[in-house]
Design a protein around this nucleic acid. Structure first.
Lengths: 173, 173
DNA sequence: GCCTAGGTTCAAAAATTATTGAAACATCAG
DNA sequence: CTGATGTTTCAATAATTTTTGAACCTAGGC
């Protein structure tokens, strides 16, 4: 498309050249990556979050990609994930269509939102199933031990569902 | 992998022939599998647990393998995992070296133990790292915003570590 | 002791998940 | 409107995780 026609004079953008992560940044990223791993959140997502978390000011797409040495696709998907879980927010400066990202004020709230989004659907979907399983067991005169277990599971599930709305992202935002 | 040619009726234990899971059992298994998935616990492990959970009496190795149609290796590893996290316990009947498995009385306790075993090591290992990262940031005169974030992270980590011992598996066991 | 039921290990295969990058898309400054 | 910039999509690939199965242990009955 664009052969190196000599456009270089005025534009400093010729070589993005971002510096790789510093040791202290890597250390923090490792922490986030590890914690994220437990919840099944991919490495790339955790790295993006860590970078934003330790950066003094919001970063744009290219900086994230450049400093983490990661593909456009991964950055895009990572931001999508973080956005979707309200873990980051963008500061779009006017005069530019570029978005700059920073972590949401409360990591705690972010985590709650993330957990909710993972468990809630499972709990909701499970409700009827569990009731069916229990009814089934009762009907066929299963041993009381098992009935008891299944009842407890049902109660748990119900309680979790009731409690869930209380865990709405706190108002302060 | 072809099945061994049938040696007619020669074998005493010729056909273990376990019946596959019933619909209600499958439904429960699906529930456990889904929940386990969120915590990164493999399907096979969740299936084993579900089967034991819904079974009126303890099951031995061969029953588990047979009913779930799963390899020896998986059953062995699955039981190892569940045992390791104290989610099941065995009733060895005398006169036989065979172990029979059943779920631990409290699923709640099991889950707590599981979570602890995942997060605790990460938290412990992170402690010095996080402190280093914070010190580093302070030293280089990073923006207060970031210092604040990192401090909070440190506090969290410390608190989590302090709280962890309180979550010891309850005495009743 | 020996033999074998009962189980474990672990390298290889299969299944699943994450990442890449090029093409498509969208938006806004001009 | 147009074109460059900024971003998303998604099929292909790479990386990781799970499962398998056959070889290998091991305890206990004989």
């Amino acid at each position: 498309m664009k052969p190196p026609s000599d456009k270089s004079a005025g534009r400093r953008k010729s070589r993005p050249s971002f510096e790789p992560l510093q040791p202290h940044e890597i250390e923090l990223a490792d922490f986030f990556v590890r914690m994220a791993g437990i919840l099944g959140v991919p490495r790339s997502v955790a790295e993006i979050y860590a970078l934003l978390y330790i950066s003094p000011n919001p970063l744009d797409f290219d900086h994230i990609q450049g400093r983490l040495g990661m593909s456009k696709g991964s950055v895009s998907q990572g931001l999508k994930f973080l956005r979707g879980h309200e873990m980051i927010l963008s500061v779009k400066e006017q005069g530019s269509r570029r978005e700059r990202w920073q972590p949401t004020p409360s990591l705690a709230a972010s985590l709650v939102a993330l957990l909710r989004s993972q468990f809630l659907p499972a709990l909701e979907q499970a409700q009827p199933s569990l009731q069916r399983v229990l009814a089934d067991a009762q009907q066929r005169g299963t041993q009381p031990e098992v009935i008891e277990r299944l009842s407890r599971l049902n109660r748990w599930n119900s309680r979790a569902l009731e409690l869930a709305p209380l865990l709405l992202p706190p108002p302060g935002a």
